[in-house]
Design a protein around this nucleic acid. Structure first.
Lengths: 117, 117
DNA sequence: CAGTTATATCGATGGATGTCAACATAGACG
DNA sequence: CGTCTATGTTGACATCCATCGATATAACTG
């Protein structure tokens, strides 16, 4: 992704909070939905939670895949989805890849939902 | 649904907030995911937002369906999904059916996500 | 370089889901 | 009762997506 493109997280952050006086536009809805779709999977939300529970809120793939009875490509796929919408950061250190929580992304989304949309 | 069964919203509320020290269990994930799936659709999140923006946070179906270029059965289907997971309440008054926001359901979910999972 | 380990990509497949047309239900009104 | 309007249900269809096996890439090791 180029530096000029925004992940769904970034576009959501710049527009929230939506006040309850006016309903969400179609555009706004279509920016938020990819984030929610990324969260709306039992494996992905557990992956996110596993990373969040770790020291420094980051974990390498090898640590995460042990928690599931799923193939390695499947875990890799789910991590990619979470990364692409901006909920996880990705860093390669040597042979290992570390994913870390983008805390403010989750906070923005939580505020948007909890704030009554 | 019988009075003894809990909607996803109710089961989520009784278990949150999840602290970041321990990761979410598989059971917890599977209670939260139906809520997120219900939210993760552009039509449904706009429906929710339209209801939330209305006086008393409630609206009848006829008001809502005008905002979409979708068939009436499709709108009815989406409202049913939101109702079944406990995000919308349903009341019939005469010929019309009114859906209203379950504010604390959205608040609980928002807190769960924004609280770092 | 060859071998081993960690992670990602590709292609295929079965199941979930959004949408519609047709029909059903249910209340209001004459 | 008959009709009109509002809403829900059903069944079919097309598309999306989670998963896998096979393969690719990339880095460490000897």
């Amino acid at each position: 992704m180029s530096a000029l493109e925004l992940t769904p997280v970034e576009t959501v952050a710049c527009c929230s909070p939506l006040m309850s006086s006016t309903p969400m536009s179609t555009d706004q809805a279509e920016r938020i939905v990819p984030l929610l779709k990324a969260l709306a999977d039992p494996v992905r939300i557990r992956l996110l939670s596993l990373v969040a529970a770790r020291e420094g809120r980051e974990a390498c793939v090898c640590d995460l895949s042990d928690a599931f009875e799923l193939s390695q490509p499947t875990i890799s796929h789910h991590l990619k989805v979470l990364h692409e919408v901006g909920l996880l950061d990705r860093t390669k250190r040597g042979t290992w890849v570390y994913y870390s929580i983008r805390t403010e992304a989750l906070a923005d989304l939580g505020a948007l939902i909890g704030g009554g949309l």
